[in-house]
Amino acid sequence: MISFKKVTKIYDPDTTVLQDVSFDVAGGEFVSIVGKSGAGKTTLIRMIMGLEKPTSGQVMFGDLSVGDATLPELQGMRRQIGSIFQDYRLFATKTVYENVAYILEVEGKENDEINTEVPKVLETIGLKHRADNFPRELSGGEQQRLAIARALINQPKVILADEPTGNLDPYNSYEVISLLEKINKTGKTVILLTHDRAVVNKLGKRVITLEDGKMIRDEKEGKFII
């Protein structure tokens, strides 16, 4: 599904943030990527989304070489990825309903389909009663659930979650991780970037550990060891 082939990223003039990183993520896998701040986690996820190009090596999304992709190819690829961020990145001037509907509108889905699908997802995520509220009117946990709803609405193949529990209390963190596990059980690939030791250890799934831009560990049922 996603492959890193000897990927190195150097920012001018000589800051190496990723060095010779290689790994494959198969469809339906749940992979946690852990590492200290500055280890290169965010650069790695930005490369998957095509927001950064590797200095050398190749990032593949299916058959597509992300670094060489054209703008329409990138748009098509990004529509297959559901992204969840620590700072939620919700559309502040759109309501809860509109935030989720936007993803389907981007894909050019018909209004009938949007009007059926969005309430369903909001119901699943427990935000149906908040449909007309703006993001600023939601709690942190609700905002993150909305971000997840937005990431799920178009049935993407991959979910990229960048520190999704970073701003949440333990209860809400647990809820979010449970949701990601559920999503993974439906066959979707989940890539989770986290600092949260408890979350990673509880999951008992594959863990890739980064340190100073190098991949130092890749374990099938790994633990958070730094």
């Binding site: 927001l51 703008l71 748009q75 990004r78 529509r79 990145r89 559309f91 936007y102 993803i103 981007v106």
Partner: peptide, 18 residues
Amino acid sequence: NSKDEISTMKIVGASDWF
């Protein structure tokens, strides 16, 4: 004021014109 939203729109696959 909307620059973060614009980048998010691009990340979710919106075309430039959208």
